[in-house]
Design a protein around this nucleic acid. Structure first.
Lengths: 374, 374
DNA sequence: TTGTAAGCGTTATCAC
DNA sequence: GTGATAACGCTTACAA
C-alpha cells in the first residue's frame, strides 16, 4: 500500500493497459477489440470500446510504429531548384490534394527538399533508414530514373506520377498532358497558324518530354514543321531566353505562335515579344500550361491547359495508401486536362496565312479525347 | 544449441543489443557510449564505438522516440486557400530554407495543409496528440492568433514568423517588411509621386497589416494622403479588382503609383491598368513585394521588395530546434529586405507633379535602415 | 474466448 | 565505472 504509486494524476493520457484494467480484461484483448479483430466476444468488445471511449483513449502512433514496423506517414522529396519550384504552383497544389486524403486517415506527409541529385538519393536513403515513411510519391520522373530501383531495393512502396521509362513495380497515376498539348496545337491550327514553336522543359524530365513529343506528333500529323523546339529548365528566365532565340529569325520564318510547357515561361515570353515590338496576340499567339491562377490576370490573359493537380495529388495519395496496405490498385485512366482559351491566342497574321501543305491526316482534328476545349 | 536461433541473417539492421553482445558489454553501456555521456571508461567507449561503426549500427528513430518522448520532426501547418498558396512562392522557398537546416541534423519536416480555420486547429491538435512533431513553425500570424494559446496549452514548442499581437512564450524570427515598404514609398516620392495607393493583404494577417501600417506611416510622414488603401486576400483576382477600384476616379484624383503587398497582385494590377488605357510606368508606377522570380520577366519588369525567405526559413529552423532542445535563443535582428528597382516605376506624369504639401519631416528620407536600395 | 508474455529498440534507474 | 532490469505503449504468438 505504501510502495504502490498513487493512481497517476490522469495527466498523461490513458494507455491500453489503463483501459484493460478498467475493463477488467487483459491488454492483449483490448488490442484485439480496438483493432476489431475476430475472436473477441461481442459484448466484451462493446464493453472495452465503451471504456476506451469513456477514458478518451487514443492510440500511440509511436508505439504502434515500433511494434508493427509502419510509419503511418508518406514522403515527398522535391529535388528541383528552389527558384523554379517556387515559381511553379505544382507542388503546393499537389500537396493540398495529398493532404485532403491523408488527413482523413490520420496519416501525415513528410516533406524533404534537396537541390542536387546526389543529395536527393541520400535523402531517400535517410528517410528510409530512419523509417520515417511507408512510401514515397515519385514526382518529376526522369529519363532512366534511378529512384525506381533505389526505392525498390530499399523495400519501400511508391507511386509514380506518370509512367516511368524503365521497368517499375510501382502503381502509376498520370495526367493526360499529351491531350492538352494536342488540344492547344489543334486550336492554333484552326486559327490559321502554321509556324508554331514549342518551348519545352528539361529533356530529362519525362513529363516535359511527353509534352514535347505530343507537340511534335500533333504538328507532324497536321503536316507542319515540328522542328521549332527549344529546351529550357522550366524557369521564366530560360523561357524568356528561348523566346528571344525563336523570334530572332527573319519575319517570314518567325513563328506566329508559341506553345510553352508552363505558364511562367509563357508570361516571360509575352514580355520578350512585346520588347521585340510584337503585339500579342496580333503578331504572336502564346499558350501556357497548367493554367496558373495568374494566367487569367496578365495582359493579355493567357490561354493555357488546365490540369487538375489537386485531384492528381488526392488520387496519388489513395493509390499509395493502398499500395502500402498491400492492395495493388492502379491510377486507372489518366486525369483529363482542359484547354482554357483566353486573349493570348488569336488568328494568325494575314501575311503568314499560307494554307498548310496538304495535311497527311485530318487537317484539324477535334479536341483530343480527355481534353475538353472551352 | 538447437533452440538458439541461428544468428539472424544480418538482413535486419543491427540493434544496440547486437552491438553490446559483440562488444561484450551491456545494452545500457552501449547507449551511454553512443550518446557520449560521462561514466564510460575511455577505451571501453572507443571499443564500443568501433564495433557500432563496424556493424553499421544506426539508431532507431522510432525506438528512441518512444523512449524519450521526442519526435525529431518539426511541423508546418499551412492554412491558406490552395489557390493563393500556389501563386505565392513563399512556402516552397521557406521550406527549402527549413530543410537545409533540418537535413543537417537528421530531423524531418511534417507538412499539413488545411483550408478552413476549424480544420486548422484540429490539425494542430491531431499532430500534437499523435506526437508527430516536437514543435511548429507558426506562419501567417493573425490578429489575436488563437494558435499561440492552443500550442501553449498543448505543451508544444514553436517559433513565430513575426511578432504576435498577443502575449507569446515563443521565440520570434522576423523580416523587416516595414523597411521594405518605406523604401518603396521613398523611391516613389523621389520620382515625384504624391498620389500613391496601397493594395494590402488581409487585415487579419499580421504581416499584411504591418506592411499597410508602414505604408501609411511613410505617407503621413511625407505629408501625403495615406488613405488610398484597398484590402484584398492576396490573390491576383482581388489585386486586379482593387486596382480597378483605385483607378475608377477622375484623373486628377487617380493614383500615379500603386504599392502592392505581393507580386502576383502587382502583375494583375499592371494588366488592369493597361486595359484601362494607361501605360505603365508612364501613367502609373507599380511596385510589388517579395521579388518573385517572374518579376524580372514580365513587361514592364516589376520593381519589387526582395525578402530572403529561404534564409528566413533556415533561421526559423535553427531557432525552433534550439527551443525544442530547451535553449531559448531568439531570432535577434529582423532579416533585411532589399528594394529592387526595375521598369515598372518611373517619374510621375508631369500633370501630377504638384510639389508635395510642406512635408512634416525630411521630405525624402534615405533608404530605411535594414533595406538596401539597388 | 481470454490471459500471459515476449518482442520492437531505446533510454533511465539503481544496484553492484 | 559497470551492467542488469525496467520502462515506453503497442502487437502478437502461445497458453489456458
Amino acid at each position: 500500500m505504501t510502495d504502490q504509486p498513487v493512481v497517476p494524476a490522469s495527466v498523461s493520457r490513458p494507455t491500453i493497459a489503463d483501459v484493460a484494467r478498467r475493463a477488467g480484461v487483459s491488454k492483449g484483448l483490448v488490442s484485439f477489440a480496438l483493432n476489431d479483430r475476430p475472436g473477441v466476444n461481442a459484448e466484451t468488445r462493446q464493453r472495452i470500446l465503451g471504456v476506451a471511449e469513456e477514458m478518451g483513449w487514443t492510440p500511440s502512433v509511436r508505439a504502434r510504429s515500433l511494434s508493427i514496423d509502419r510509419s503511418f506517414a508518406l514522403g515527398l522529396v522535391i529535388a528541383r531548384d528552389p527558384g523554379i519550384v517556387a515559381a511553379d504552383p505544382f507542388f503546393p497544389t499537389f500537396i493540398s490534394g495529398v493532404e485532403s486524403e491523408l488527413s482523413e486517415v490520420g496519416q501525415s506527409l513528410v516533406l524533404a527538399s534537396t537541390t542536387s541529385q546526389r543529395q536527393e538519393a541520400e535523402t531517400y536513403r535517410q528517410l528510409a533508414r530512419d523509417k520515417r515513411v511507408d512510401g514515397f510519391f515519385l514526382t518529376d520522373l526522369r529519363a532512366d530514373d534511378e529512384r525506381i530501383s533505389l526505392l525498390q531495393q530499399l523495400g519501400l512502396r511508391a507511386v509514380t506520377l506518370g509512367h516511368p521509362d524503365v521497368a517499375s513495380p510501382f502503381p502509376v497515376v498520370s495526367s493526360d498532358d499529351g491531350a492538352g498539348i494536342r488540344a492547344v496545337v489543334a486550336h492554333l491550327i484552326v486559327l490559321g497558324h502554321t509556324r508554331i514553336a514549342h518551348v519545352a522543359g528539361p529533356a530529362d524530365m519525362l513529363h516535359a518530354t511527353h509534352r514535347r513529343i505530343a507537340f511534335e506528333e500533333a504538328m507532324t500529323e497536321a503536316g507542319l514543321d515540328a522542328s521549332r523546339v527549344v529546351e529550357t529548365d522550366f524557369s521564366a528566365r530560360e523561357g524568356a531566353e528561348a523566346t528571344r532565340r525563336l523570334l530572332a529569325v527573319r519575319s517570314s520564318m518567325r513563328p506566329t505562335a508559341i506553345v510553352y510547357s508552363n505558364d511562367p515561361m509563357a508570361i516571360a515570353g509575352i514580355a520578350v515579344a512585346r520588347r521585340a515590338g510584337l503585339d500579342v496576340p496580333r503578331d504572336l499567339s502564346v499558350a501556357g500550361f497548367d493554367n496558373t491562377d495568374i494566367a487569367e490576370h496578365v495582359y493579355p490573359s493567357l490561354t493555357s491547359v488546365a490540369t487538375d493537380v489537386a485531384r492528381w495529388g488526392a488520387t496519388a495519395a489513395r493509390v499509395l495508401l493502398a499500395a502500402v496496405a498491400g492492395d495493388a490498385i492502379d491510377g486507372r485512366v489518366p486525369l483529363p486536362t482542359r484547354l482554357v482559351i483566353r486573349e493570348s491566342t488569336a488568328a494568325a497574321p494575314e501575311a503568314a496565312r499560307t494554307p498548310p501543305p496538304s495535311p497527311l491526316q485530318t487537317p484539324s482534328p477535334p479536341a483530343s479525347p480527355g481534353t475538353t476545349t472551352v
